[in-house]
Every structure is written in C-alpha cells, then in structure tokens.
C-alpha cells in the first residue's frame, strides 16, 4: 500500500498528490512514469512523474479527472492509500548538454513538462516556457514554472488569462523574433504536439514529445502502447515515452487513444453515479 501524504486540488479537474513510494522516489527522473491501481478491481493506469523527493521518499503525481479510475483516485484523501504504485518506468528525458530550450505544455501536460523545465533550469539551461489552457480557471503550476524559466508565456483559448491564442502562436512569435533553441520539448494533447512539431519542423528545430498511450503492464509485455515513429513500431513504455516529434505518426496515435472512448465514458458515468449514491 502506498500512502497519500499530501493532496492538493490544482483546479476543478486536476489534482496533485504526493505518494509515499521510496523505491520509486529513489530512482525517478523527469520524463519517467509510474503505473498505479487504485483498488483490487481497478485498472492499471500510467501517470508521468511530476516531481519527487528522494529524502522523504515521495513521488508527486498530477492527474486530470477524465475517467472512472482518475475519478476513484480523486476520492482518496491524505492518509488514504493507493493499492499498487510501481516505477519508475520508461526512459528518462534527455536533458544533458542542452543550453537553451523551449518547454511547451498544454493543459495537464504541464504537470509533466514542469519537472523537465525544473531540471533544465537547475542545470543552468535557459528555459522559455509556454503553457496553454482553455481558460484561467484551469491554469496550473504558474509559480513553479515561473521559478524554473527565464521567460514564461500563458496562452488561453478564450483570452481570460495571459494572451488569447494557441501555444503554437506564442512559439511561432518567438521563433520569428529570432530565438534559437537547441530543442523544443512539448507535452500535452496529441493534437497540440502534432501542431507544435509541424511548426518546429518548418523552422528546423529538434523537437521531443512525450507520449502517454493506453498501457496495461508498462514493462514491455503487452504491446498496447505501440506507436509508429519514423516508420518503425515502438513501445512507449520501454522505448519512450519521449520520441522525436517530427517522426511520430500522430493520426495513428490519436485513433489508438480513442479506442476505449465509449467504454470509458460509460465506466466514468457509472463511477460518478456510485459516488453520488454514497453522498445521498
């Protein structure tokens, strides 16, 4: 059992938890992920490591409530325990030797982008962070990003905070203004990563994306997380989750991500109804 030490609501649909998992905390690096199972009937879901404290033995996860499992997870509180929590899995993000980087995060993807920005910053790299949200209420990790970046830009779809527009608008402006990056690291919805990669390809800037497909075991056994990168089949769990953004087949990844959509919607509704009954 893995105890929840801290729980913080970041916005109405995104929650942060510090979980006691010393073995994971000891080894975790930005870009890696964990797999958890809330209870005995639960599904195994992958979540990227958002932060870790090696001394306290805790790992921070940040998740958006999108389905039955994250809904159940969100009903746990400080002092409660998660049944299974395994990791760190996957290959850590490559940050060595990078001097100037644009970190582009979208929505809850910012939770994954943040530890990378933080690590780059601590290594002395110049970090420009561009984060995008639908509106001001959904904004997360603003202070954290500011601390880890020399320049910080917020984009919102409705203009309720920062600038109105997409992260690609901000990135294009910077590139057009002559900013030259060793690498662009982008994490967020597939469609966003697709368009960031399309833009940076035009400018010839190396781009790394973090993929988060459906997984079962997370150790290379099931192959459910496979995707096509540069015409080759890769497993996100052992070959990734980071890949060359210019080589990923996003359309295939988007189709695969939608495989269980109907099932998930149904399971989510059922879980919500269950919790509603408990309240009444």
């Amino acid at each position: 059992m893995y105890k929840i030490i801290k729980k913080k609501i970041l916005n109405p649909t995104v929650t942060l938890m510090d979980v006691e998992a010393p073995l994971v905390a000891r080894k975790a690096e930005p870009g890696q992920f964990i797999i958890l199972r809330v209870d005995a009937e639960g599904e195994r879901i992958p979540l990227t490591v958002a932060d870790f404290d090696r001394e306290k033995g805790t790992v921070t996860i940040i998740f958006q409530i999108v389905g039955a499992t994250t809904e159940k997870l969100n009903h746990l509180n400080e002092g409660d325990s998660i049944l299974d929590f395994v990791g760190p899995l996957g290959v850590a993000s490559h940050t060595e030797g990078l001097k100037k980087v644009a970190v582009v995060g979208g929505g809850v993807g910012c939770a994954i982008a943040y530890p990378i920005a933080k690590k780059l910053h601590s290594q002395g790299a110049e970090v420009h962070s561009i984060v995008g949200f639908r509106n001001k209420d959904l904004l997360i990790l603003e202070d954290e990003f500011k601390k880890a970046s020399s320049r910080y830009f917020v984009m919102t779809d409705d203009g309720s905070y920062g600038e109105k527009g997409l992260v690609t608008d901000a990135l294009k402006k910077l590139l057009d203004a002559g900013e030259r990056y060793d690498e662009v690291i982008t994490i967020g919805p597939l469609i966003m990563m697709k368009f960031v990669s399309k833009l940076t390809k035009e400018y010839g800037v190396k781009t790394v994306v973090s993929m988060n497909p459906v997984m079962v075991d997370g150790t290379g056994m099931c192959g459910g997380c496979r995707l096509t990168v540069g015409g080759e089949v890769k497993f996100a769990c052992v070959d990734g989750p980071d890949f060359d953004g210019h080589e990923v087949d996003y359309d295939e990844a988007m189709a695969r991500a939608a495989m269980y959509k109907d099932f998930e919607r149904h399971a989510y509704e059922e879980t919500c109804n269950l919790f509603k009954q408990e309240v009444n």
Partner: peptide, 22 residues
C-alpha cells in the same frame, strides 16, 4: 519472455489488433 512479436504486416496498429499478451 515478455516482449510480444508482431507480424510486420500493414494495418497491425489498427484498433482491435492485440498481442496475445495484452
């Protein structure tokens, strides 16, 4: 022997294609 083999034929990443392991 955990790593599943695939056939390397077109269409193998379509939704509804599983490794037996998965």
């Amino acid at each position: 022997a955990g790593l599943p083999r695939f056939m390397n034929v077109p269409g193998e990443n379509l939704n509804g294609v599983y490794s037996a392991n998965e």
